[in-house]
Design a protein around this nucleic acid. Structure first.
Lengths: 201, 201
DNA sequence: ACAAGTAGTGAACCACCATTCACACCTTGA
DNA sequence: TCAAGGTGTGAATGGTGGTTCACTACTTGT
């Protein structure tokens, strides 16, 4: 006879699953992906390592869900920024500023999401993130080209370049992009888009 | 009594060391960093795995030298491009074009050098590469700002952004930047630098 | 020619981490 | 209350790759 799972047990399982994911988020933000062994996550969640496998078939499933959760949150933030009123160029800058601000607030997490060495399944999720970010920017560029506020250009390529530029400046190993970098980055972005008189006195 | 090493033995040791490094280069270019286990390198070089340790104290020493060798070659190429006659903007574009052409020629190697998940000592060498590339670009931007052909800007930041943009477009996971991307990238670069009338009809 | 030092070998060893699983304890149903 | 199903545990297991090392064969010096 198969036992049903009572609401109390279900609630406990759900709570445990959430605790596991929360612990993974915390570890990713403080120790990066390299700190996210199953053992470390289990400890952070206050459960046995074997218990992690009750909720996730293997580590890949856990970290893929971890990244999806975080990526979804980041993408929503930049999408909200892209919805603000203003010209196409201004909205792209809003996206850039949003990303930069978030990277400044949680630099380790930003690095983990975009550049840190990770396993293959996670790399795939990372592509999703970069692609989503690029697409948000590309859509605005496309609008700017159509309404004539931006010069003709390959929107997807420009957007990819902007994504790369922002990532390099804010999280790349070359700089510890600080608050002052954000303003410069905005100017760079406007120029790169071809906004008339951007950064050209 | 300690034996001296005869010229013949020294030559053989040198030849073996070179074969090991050559094998590592080949593996990096065909299978990426993940394919560069000590066992694989040894096999490619036609020696026993234990023999690798006669030349390199550990794997880190081997791969650091591997990356240094390759990075030096790449940096020399972009430095040559930067020495060409022309305005500051034109020289930055020459650097960008050179990098792009080399990435098109050996995409897997380019990815390994700039973005593929690697071990920490290699990550440090990668920083050297990006920094060198950025510095070459920043020096030209600085000249352009001084001679008035480029608008005032944070040369280092712009250069980092350009490095990031180029890397994302040519080797990033979002695009398989092809030949047509190179021209667009040049236009993007000129605009980003603030070259008057660049991409602005 | 012989003794001793050195180079080459590849299997054994070690470290690390993901996953499994036997056992203990809790929960469910009658 | 008891039997049987379900959950939690953490040590054992297995896989992977870096490194070591006992042994063999070659090299050097007399």
């Amino acid at each position: 006879m198969v036992y049903r799972r009572t609401p109390k047990i279900q609630a406990r399982m759900d709570s445990q699953r959430a605790a596991i994911l929360d612990a993974a988020v915390e570890l990713l933000a403080t120790r990066g992906y390299a700190g996210c062994s199953v053992a470390a996550v289990a400890e952070g969640a206050g459960v046995a390592t074997g218990s992690v496998y009750r909720h996730f078939g293997n580590k890949a499933e856990l970290v893929v869900e971890l990244f999806r959760q975080l990526v979804t949150r980041e993408v929503e933030a930049v999408e909200r920024a892209a919805q603000r009123p203003g010209s196409a160029g201004e909205r792209v800058v809003a996206v850039v500023d949003t990303f930069a601000a978030r990277a400044l607030k949680a630099p380790r997490l930003a690095y983990a999401l975009l550049a840190e060495p990770v396993d293959a399944p996670v790399e795939a999720e990372r592509i999703v993130f970069r692609r989503a970010f690029r697409d948000v920017v590309a859509a605005r560029i496309g609008e700017g080209v159509r309404d004539g506020t931006l010069p003709p250009q390959e929107a997807a390529l420009t957007a990819a370049a902007v994504v790369g530029a922002v990532a390099e400046v804010m999280i790349g190993p070359l700089t510890s992009g600080g608050e002052d970098a954000v303003g410069e980055l905005s100017t760079f972005t406007l120029r790169a888009l071809g906004v008339p008189h951007a950064g050209n006195p």
